[in-house]
């Protein structure tokens, strides 16, 4: 579904991504796992089209990202940032409705279809009861779910658009800023969305256990290279973990043991 090939990105002298190639299958839940500074967030920006690679290509459904009209791309590909801070007091419903932007003309107001989509998205993320609340008064986990709802509305949740499976949801470190309870909430939500099998989900994380528990497939990214790609139980070997995080093998072995216990069946 989403592919990149030989992508190179550098900031000044520093190479962030060195010939990264990646293929994300439709309906998968792929986790890009790596330590801080490995290039995860940069890779996500490349995959979302926010960053154009110096060399290499990125395609969505076989079509180059750069060739999409911005609103058409936005209808198929949504991004959830690590954290969302608002300068002004929007309500939750308003935030979710903002996801409908690419579906509307320049001066068009949201219509019944957009409201239906927003409510479907609120419903899917279990945030119906928050619709009237001010976004800034929510907890971290609630905020994250609302932003996911907004992304779902953007991808046409609850409308005929949603039945086509060619939709991609990208999440940057969805749990990094959350404490355990909210991590579990978000993990459960991602699991539910994955189970629906109507979209492709790509997320980045540095949390090995979270990645093992949620993702159907992992990409290990170390120092701008793809080290391994495959199902968690194949990729998360003691050696790979040790190499990826630069820790001793005995330390990694403990990790691998706890991880394999938590891997999705």
């Amino acid at each position: 579904m989403l592919q990149c090939h030989d992508v190179v990105i550098s900031y000044g002298e520093r190479r962030i991504l060195q010939k990264v190639s990646l293929s994300v299958a439709a309906r998968g839940l792929v986790g890009v796992l790596g330590p801080n500074g490995s290039g995860k967030t940069t890779l996500l920006k490349v995959l979302s089209g926010a960053l154009t690679p110096e060399t290499g290509t990125v395609t969505l459904g076989g079509q180059g990202l750069g060739t999409f009209a911005p609103s058409l791309l936005a209808r198929r590909l949504a991004v959830v940032p690590q954290e969302t801070h608002l300068a002004f007091d929007y309500s939750v419903l308003e935030i979710v409705l903002m996801g409908r932007y690419p579906h509307l003309g320049p001066f068009e107001f949201e219509g019944p279809a957009d409201f239906a989509s927003a409510h479907a998205a609120l419903n899917a993320t279990g945030t119906d009861h928050l619709a009237e609340r001010a976004f800034n008064t929510l907890s971290g986990g609630e905020k994250q779910r609302v932003v996911i709802a907004s992304a779902l509305a953007q991808l046409g949740e609850g409308t005929p658009d949603a039945t086509t499976a060619g939709r991609v949801l990208l999440l940057d470190e969805p749990t990094a800023a959350l404490d355990l309870r909210y991590q579990l909430e978000v993990a459960a939500l991602l699991g539910r969305l994955h189970d629906r099998q109507d979209m492709t989900i790509v997320l980045t994380t540095h949390d090995v256990q979270f990645a093992a528990r949620v993702c159907s497939e992992l990409v290990l990214l170390g120092d701008g290279h793809v080290i391994a790609q495959g199902p968690p139980q194949d990729v998360l070997t003691t050696e790979q973990i040790a190499a990826l995080y630069g820790i001793r093998v005995d330390q990694a072995a403990m990790f691998a043991a706890t991880v394999s216990a938590g891997v999705r069946p």
Binding site: L72, A78, M98, Y101, L104
Partner: peptide, 24 residues
């Protein structure tokens, strides 16, 4: 300003998030 009203809403999510929703 009339044209800007809605894009400014999305801009308050952050430049990247606004860009991801198809805003130039």
């Amino acid at each position: 300003f009339v044209w800007l009203a809605r894009p400014l809403n999305l801009l308050s999510l952050g430049a990247d998030a606004a860009g991801a929703r198809g805003i130039n």
